[in-house]
Amino acid sequence: MISGSLMNATTIFYMLSTLAFFIYMAGRNKQIGLAGSTLAWTGFAIQTVALGLRWKESYDMGVGHAPMSNLYESVVFFAWSIVLIFGIIDAKYKYRVIGAFVMPFALLGMTWGQLYLPSDISPLMPALQSNWLTYHVISCFLGYAAFAVACGVSIMYLIKAKSEQKGDEAAGGILSVFPPTRVLDDLNYKAIMVGFPLLTLGIITGAAWANYAWGTYWSWDPKETWSLIVWFVYAAFLHARFTKGWVGKRAAWLSIIGFAATIFCYLGVNLLLSGLHSYGGM
């Protein structure tokens, strides 16, 4: 299928983009930084076409649904969302080096999907046949993607803060391309300001859907509970900046822990715990 080859091409573009950002971080050559962004955007454009085609292909097969219904489709959509959010931040704030800490997440997702996950288009079981599925998945994954960006920025913050503490700023090197900690802290907060409402919307659309399908908007199933855990962590993050003793490094750690919880919510629950979202039949 054409969409499959385009997905492979996407993976290669994301790999080249990641590579370019790494080289940019080491050598601070502006042209290479620009190449990193261009490669990311090109990959993104190809992937957008691939997603659209896959959607169409599912209709051609008579089992039409948005391409977000199994693990492969979700991980590919996750990668797409990460590049989208990174792209917006890149276009708006022009701190290219962030790409070196964010594009690897997208690359990892694409590589895992393309190499290890079954990519067949399969029909939807009755419980999944709902428009809520699309709304739910889109808002959740855009939220997760914003958290991925926040996590990348937080890692940069911690590295930068450590070097500023030691006072070897003047030494130049890799860290001199990093934005100042003040900017990193702000970007972290901005990304979570985008991610938190999206996650909230994702949880609410999930609850609305559960109410349609099963008659309960909340049943403390492990996936629901983990999404709430993630929500609590980021709610704490949002209040950290008004709380004495919680600004700076601790907030950056909260953001990283929040993303670790997000990944567990997304993958760990399905792979390690059981519940409704494993879709083991009615």
């Binding site: 709610a235 709380t243 003793g245 919880a261």
Partner: peptide, 12 residues
């Protein structure tokens, strides 16, 4: 707000 932080993290 310290209580808020404590309760939210404890809940998580």
């Amino acid at each position: 707000l310290r209580l808020t932080m404590a309760v939210l993290i404890l809940l998580a």
